[in-house]
Design a protein around this nucleic acid. Structure first.
Length: 163
DNA sequence: GCCAACGTTGGC
DNA sequence: GCCAACGTTGGC
């Protein structure tokens, strides 16, 4: 019974367009030599694969269609370059099948599509020097590649990016 | 279940 | 290119 209700609830929720109250924002890092913002614009939609860190995977599984994503370039650039959107529910990486202890797909993936480039690239240095972002994973936890961006920081970042 | 050794990420 | 800060692995 619960299963059946859960099924219909999921169906109903899936058919309701995302609204601002429930939308979340994330930040995804990428090494531009590997896969850049320009690559994303070129292909139009891309499965965000290669995430193997467990904390990053937890954040990735929390992504929902319509959620938006700051795209950040690591390496020499170290700056936010664009805004993208989650295009589907997280799903199992077809190239890396397997289940974790919770019987979830071990390696989750979400498809991402570009929304628009930033007007002003916001650098890691700016973010680190701004107290408002002191609790952002990007600042606190250098090596995490997929992270949520709390609403207040989201707003501040969008302003800085000219979005 | 502990922990040393090792591998990786990503800033500097 | 270096290395700090992790996460992972495997011996015990």
């Amino acid at each position: 019974m619960t299963l059946v209700m859960g099924f219909f609830l999921r169906l109903r929720l899936a058919s309701v367009p995302a609204d601002n109250a429930t939308m979340a924002t994330f930040l995804f890092k990428t090494e531009p030599d590997d896969f850049s913002w320009d690559d994303l614009v070129r292909v139009g939609r891309e499965p965000w694969n290669g995430v193997s860190n467990n904390t990053a995977l937890i954040h990735l599984r929390a992504c929902r269609p319509g959620d938006e994503v700051f795209i950040y370039h690591t390496g020499k650039e170290r700056r936010i370059v664009g805004l993208a959107r989650i295009a589907c529910e997280p799903y199992e990486d077809p190239e890396k099948p397997g289940r974790n202890a919770k019987d979830e797909p071990k390696f989750a993936v979400v498809d991402v599509e570009p929304v628009k480039p930033v007007k002003t690239a916001v650098t890691l240095a700016e973010i680190k020097s701004d107290k408002r972002f002191a609790d952002l994973w990007l600042v606190k936890h250098t090596r995490l590649s997929v992270m949520p961006v709390p609403a207040k920081m989201d707003k501040a970042l969008r302003t800085m990016c000219g979005l």
